[in-house]
Design a protein around this nucleic acid. Structure first.
Lengths: 315, 315
DNA sequence: ACGAGTATTTGACTTTTGTCAGCGGCCTCG
DNA sequence: CGAGGCCGCTGACAAAAGTCAAATACTCGT
């Protein structure tokens, strides 16, 4: 007599309900439990990723603008979040779309790099549960406390949890108080190995940070408003995985970058699928820099941002 | 003002309901239609494959027997349909499992060969709808009227319809009354090209036929009971895509095979993923022949059949 | 332009599903 | 050994989803 574990009952209930199309009361009779329990098991099955429900994202790629941007920017694929009045608020829509596209693009066995920011955290927050095998999720940049609770390690951990994947955190601060200490820490075997393994990723998920004086990096205390303003005057245009880039998407030669523990920008550029998600309209300049720097192969933006990019890059 | 096509409304309703988790009445309010319409659109979205609901099939591979069979038979993967009293009737379970595994194994752009039989038709019958892109479904064997309505072209057409794939039928009878006519028909350009394209398939779905005097091939009138009995005495062991094979899984040298219009057995063997689904317990001998003939890389059987195979192949 | 025929939409009703307080078993610790 | 706490299951009720006949909006041919 095989002992039926709770997991097996859950799995079987999900199978009968979703695959055979039985009603909950029929499943209950079949498994000899109450219907209420069936409802409970079904919820757990969805939350554990045993059951997957997905919807085609073609709604967001079937716009002409998406096609035009793919050609003009030379990226693989673009998704456009519309802003007409029949649509939801883009702030709510974009993370959901990003999560759906993300799940669509990843495969068993992938190694996925996750960077840092409000956008990434929101994506993690709405990420459906899935039961992928052999996925590894690695953290692309060091840690930083945050006034919101969007710490880099949390993003990585949460996404790994939802995918039933292995999560690898980077146990180092994002930014150190001296260049010397940062260099020494980077040279530590445990950190060095982890940074060295980043080129093995085949997928990256991130946004691009702004360089205003109230940008995320400033709010989190990595830079003072004055330092950020100075960087801006020196030509800073955006932030990728905690590192400041110039208008051409190249790493700035500055003290902050030297004090930073994060994925090497060339390593990031070498990742085959680089999914960039940009929510805020004021990220235009940073996004232009990121695109020039080849940081996006898959891009998710609002229609208004898409139009501005089109004007900028179509000539 | 963009004109909202019915398809777009359906797609958007599905998006809001399944991805954002809104209730039907909230979706209705958002899209300014009645809740009943939302329910209708959601059904259509599921039936058109815009929404995908799938359940992990690991329940059926987590048996020890499956592992052992994979080793003993040298096949890639085995799924076992249990027959304990908590389980559904295998006759109902197997097609559902086969359809789920099938959907799991195929990818965008695949070319899929479909053979013929009651089993395959039942699988087609419960196949979920999906919105795969660039899939082609080709018919592996000629047509034959049937006392049940399991004609080969129907299997192909139905599966293609459900996957939103292109279906390519073989417009020839499975069996002709003379060898000469069969040879001439095979030489016809339209038929020849189609048969020649079968090695381009990367996936095959079929079962194996029996050689009893009431087997499918006899019931459909392709062979008389006497002819089948004679073939049995000559060493026939099973039927693959309408063609009779011997106990080693090799093509029999017989009149029936020469009168047959179907995929070349070597072409079938060359297909990378060959998914064989066997429902009936009396298919033991034919299945052994099919396995010896390398016709299965992915196998779905009942636990009792699995045990018999294990006894046969473990030594 | 008109009307027959077809497809879409809806309100009202029925069925199915989600929820949660409370019951009961079981394990732990005093 | 018994009390306390935890976990899982269930019955009963509330909420949500499915269904269908009837109404309305389209389409196409004449």
């Amino acid at each position: 007599m095989p002992i039926k574990s709770a997991d097996q009952v859950m799995h079987k209930a999900a199978w009968l309900y979703y695959m055979h199309g039985l009603r909950q009361d029929e499943v209950a009779r079949q498994l000899d439990i109450s219907r209420a329990s069936v409802a409970l098991y079904l919820r757990r099955a969805r939350e554990s990723g045993i059951v997957n429900i997905s919807t085609s994202t073609s709604l967001f790629t079937h716009e002409n603008l998406a096609r035009e941007l793919e050609d003009a920017l030379g990226v693989v694929s673009v998704w456009i979040v519309p802003e007409d009045r029949l649509a939801l608020d883009p702030a709510a829509e974009m993370p959901v779309l990003a999560a759906a596209v993300f799940l669509d693009l990843i495969n068993k066995g992938d190694r996925i790099g996750i960077a840092w920011g409000k956008t990434v955290y929101h994506i993690a927050d709405v990420m459906p549960f899935a039961d992928l095998n052999g996925i590894t999720v690695v953290q692309l940049c060091g840690n930083l406390g945050s006034p919101y609770s969007y710490r880099p390690d949390q993003c990585t951990t949460e996404i790994a949890r939802r995918l039933n994947a292995e999560g690898i955190n980077l146990y180092a601060p994002l930014v150190l108080s001296s260049e010397r200490l940062a260099a020494e820490l980077r040279a530590e075997p445990v950190i060095r190995e982890q940074l060295a393994s980043i080129p093995e990723c085949n997928f990256a998920l991130y946004s691009v940070g702004g360089i205003e004086e109230d940008s995320h990096l400033v709010k989190c205390g990595a830079l003072t408003p004055a330092e950020m303003a100075a960087l801006g005057r020196q030509g800073a245009a955006g932030v990728i995985a905690g590192q400041v880039i110039d208008a051409d998407g190249q790493l700035m030669d500055c003290a902050h970058n030297r004090r930073c523990i994060s994925a090497d920008l060339d390593s990031i550029r070498a990742i085959p699928k680089r999914m960039m998600v940009v929510q805020e309209d004021n990220k235009y300049q940073p996004l232009v820099a990121a695109i020039k720097g080849q940081f996006a192969s898959h891009l998710i933006v609002t229609s208004s941002m898409g139009k501005r990019l089109m004007e900028r890059f179509s000539k």
